[in-house]
């Protein structure tokens, strides 16, 4: 179970722009992964582990500004974000994870580098791929029919589509969303088939008179 979880943790780290750890590397390094592995003072870091069974863990290290609270992530392990303290000196620091009360269940490490080394190691810039959404709006146009309205519209695309299908014939005429025309055709075809079936039955039961009467309409 443990290797599998560590593996998943490594995959998550890769996905979130983390260190290039293969599954075996992650396991060999320990049960705690710090991303990026090489940091400088003040850097944000992400800590992950797959060894805890509960929904909460905290990671402590002398290099961290404060203990990192870790919560479940989609992949099944726990992850949290923290920061390297500004006073951290260059060196290798152990990182301990306490699983929901159990002290020091897992261990990993993080390497704090000299600040001037940054340009070299930024060449592998995937270490420093951003991981958060940007804040790039003040809301001044939110009430206008600007982008906000349009993206909202996109979010409700499914609902709109369903509504459009419901108003079958009209929606199909007015260039409509996908689904409107096929539904109309299927509905119409089925209705006509049902009608002819009913007419045949009534004709079969009541003889020629019923059929002639139906033909008139």
């Amino acid at each position: 179970m443990r290797p599998a979880r560590a593996c998943l943790a490594a995959v998550l780290l890769l996905l979130t722009g983390g260190a290039a750890v293969s599954c075996t590397d992650a396991h060999a390094q320990g049960d705690v992964t710090v991303t990026p592995y090489r940091v400088q003072r003040g850097d944000p870091v992400q800590v992950s582990t797959g060894v805890c069974r509960g929904d909460y863990a905290s990671a402590t290290s002398e290099a961290f500004e404060a203990p990192v609270n870790m919560r479940p992530e989609n992949f099944g392990g726990l992850t949290g974000r923290g920061k390297i303290k500004w006073t951290a000196r260059p060196g290798t620091y152990p990182v301990w994870v306490d699983c929901d009360g159990d002290r020091r269940v897992a261990r990993g490490q993080v390497v704090v580098e000299e600040p001037h080394k940054r340009p070299e190691h930024w060449k592998n810039n995937w270490h420093h791929q951003p991981w958060s959404p940007v804040t790039a709006g003040g809301g001044g146009t939110a009430k206008q029919t600007g982008q906000a309205a349009r993206t909202e519209q996109a979010e409700q695309a499914e609902q709109a589509e369903q509504a459009q299908s419901a108003t079958s014939a009209r929606a199909a005429g007015a260039d409509g969303g996908p689904g409107a025309l096929p539904l109309t055709l299927v509905g119409g075809g089925a209705a006509v088939l049902a009608l002819t079936l009913v007419r045949r039955r009534t004709r079969g039961a009541a003889g020629g008179t019923g059929a002639e009467a139906a033909d008139g309409g």
Partner: peptide
Amino acid sequence: AWVVLLLG
């Protein structure tokens, strides 16, 4: 009707 149904 069948044609329309199948097309739909």
